[in-house]
Design a protein around this nucleic acid. Structure first.
Lengths: 211, 211, 211, 211
DNA sequence: AATGAATGAGTATTCATTCAT
DNA sequence: TATGAATGAATACTCATTCAT
């Protein structure tokens, strides 16, 4: 049960605690001062361990960030799709689905906006992050396609893969810009427009109950 | 007539030429090796001037990048809206407009994808870039609103500001991800879906001639 | 019965085996990656014991090297003089003696040239090695003097101590440079010249049987 | 007029002075504390310049050492062979030549014994030094062969290349061990033995005037 | 006896920026 | 105007050694 970002695999309780303290310290410092602005010594210091210990648990500053972000993305992902699937089962309308997606996305992005900022920058800057985000995007598209497939008759679009991608793109850029830069105009108007655009595009009748 | 990025305002022809040589050298090097990966000495060397001269023309490495990117954005912007306005006058359909927008956006983004990459990263990393992009976004939204306003009857959306923003977001994220990461699925399918989504959303009849 | 290089003196068989495993692992790794390039953790790892155990048996990485090299030197020494004494008894000529010495020296140096390299460097770098080599040299000189003394009439030289030293020096530098750097010119010519120089110097008639 | 060890080629007097100060500081510190024991910051400090300046003039600590040692070797070399050639012209005996060689070698090695120590260690440790010494050895052998060739009739040896090598080896090891470790026995006896061995080997009549 | 987690001092090198010439 | 020599703070990572278990 080892992985890429871990050097020493902690077995004992005390070790696990140290590793967690390092992760927490790093999250706090990366959020405050950015990734480049934080160094291993500081992280170790804040976690109450030595630099050596830092390097015993993580090959790298980057390895630590990669772990933080991939965990974060996995958490968000799971939470969002769980709720969406429930809603499909409950017979919500297409527009309601889009609104829920927006609310969930909004919440998850506002959890740690500074980390989001870092991740968004890194994906343009570092190959490993580019790859990680690409994988995540593929997964997300596949899940959206899965959800859409279950909606049969009411679907307006036919090329589900392409539809999933453009809808995801519209969601993401809007969520990100709101979370990171703040909304240009009132959030509600923006989100309502986003729900409208995606619902009208995806569904024949956006206000009819799905399935 | 001084501005933020300039220290010395070149009056003589020889000065202007030096400044341009510095800008060209920087564009080439930033594209090749990234922003962090390029240093002032290299830029000066490639431009055939001394480091001292570099700092005579630009306060900073960042100032130079800021200038490069704002120029680039202004160029793209002008070109895109020029063509779009012409098309509105020529009585194209909504869908055709969206397709043209996509083609223009695609071309402009593929001109210097490495610089785009840098800009996209910097906007999440550096306050000055955040601001520059915010201003640009506001301008772009205003221009889109202007275009839409001219379409009167055929417009489906009512909150033009919000509509302009979400449509711009959908465009941008899609363009960027294609330009920087390459398309996940075939480009044509993706672009067609994007045109469909935005056209169906903005217009009552996406296939009727506007105006 | 303790000595400098040992912390714990192993009494049980299992302990002795561990100690030997550590020595073997170290010899292999020092040869491959040099002394500075090898660390205690690696040695312990290759020997299948923990770092703690390493430090239970050796005060130091250096202590281990010192032991390896002094063992090695002792082995070589014994083998060489054993054979030489046999030859004196068998009535060989002076030149034949020199040739045999060269062959024996050559073989012993080519056994572990990388360790030789390390030792040659350390003797100029580290006081303990300087001392160790000095002691070894004195021993060797004494033994050569012993051999020469037994040759009575045929000896050309009178200051046996000085003669032993310069002959040993000529042998050593030649052996070392061949073993470590490879011969500049053909080995046989070099070795024949060396045998000639030392035989002509030491003996009245280099080709008469000694004794 | 650039070379391997120099980054910035000093043209101005002040630059040249700085470079020299760095070389002097390094020689002093390497001698005192060894090569590994000295760092760039110290050298710069002792020379009264900044670390940055150090790296402007030398790519490396090693580059600096390489320069110091190759200069040193060139100086010694020139001085020794100059005098030897003069002596051949003056009709000295073979034995006198060997004695002079020893005196010259002794003096040059005692000039900076700590640097000698470092060089002797590095040649077993670092490829670049191995190479440098190999080149030097080839040169020296060639020069000795040149000298010997001029002695025609009185020469006892026929394979001049091999003879030059083994004689050089005997000289070197003896010089080095005296310079670095101090003589085991009285220096004069050792040197006399060395002169005797080499003279008797090289010449038919070691005490006849050459040429 | 044995383990291996933890320590933290130590070091080479870069580069944005300045300023004397 | 232009030069380029000089600065020195800043940073990631290693590894010999210890010691609680």
């Amino acid at each position: 049960m080892s992985n890429d970002t871990t050097v020493r695999v902690p077995q004992q309780a005390r070790s696990i605690e140290k590793r967690n303290r390092l992760v927490d310290a790093a999250m706090a410092l990366f959020g405050e001062k950015g990734f480049q602005g934080t160094n291993a010594k500081e992280i170790a210091g804040k976690a109450g361990v030595s630099v050596g210990t830092f390097y015993a648990y993580f090959t790298d500053k980057k390895a630590l960030l990669l772990e933080i972000l991939s965990r974060h993305m996995a958490d968000v992902d799971a939470a969002v799709f769980e709720e969406l699937r429930a809603m499909v089962r409950d017979g919500a309308t297409g527009r309601e689905m889009m609104r829920l997606t927006i609310r969930l996305g909004h919440d998850s992005h506002h959890h740690a906006p500074e980390l989001l900022r870092i991740m968004l920058a890194m994906r343009y800057t570092d190959e490993d992050f580019t790859r990680m985000v690409a994988v995540e995007n593929r997964d997300m598209t596949a899940k959206i396609v899965g959800l859409l497939s279950a909606m049969g008759d009411n679907l307006r679009v036919t090329d589900l893969d392409a539809a999933a991608r453009v809808v995801a793109n519209a969601f993401e850029e809007t969520m990100h810009s709101v979370a990171v830069f703040g909304p240009d105009i009132e959030q509600d108007r923006l989100y309502e427009a986003l729900a409208d655009m995606t619902a009208v595009y995806l569904f024949k009748d956006p206000d009819a109950p799905l399935k």
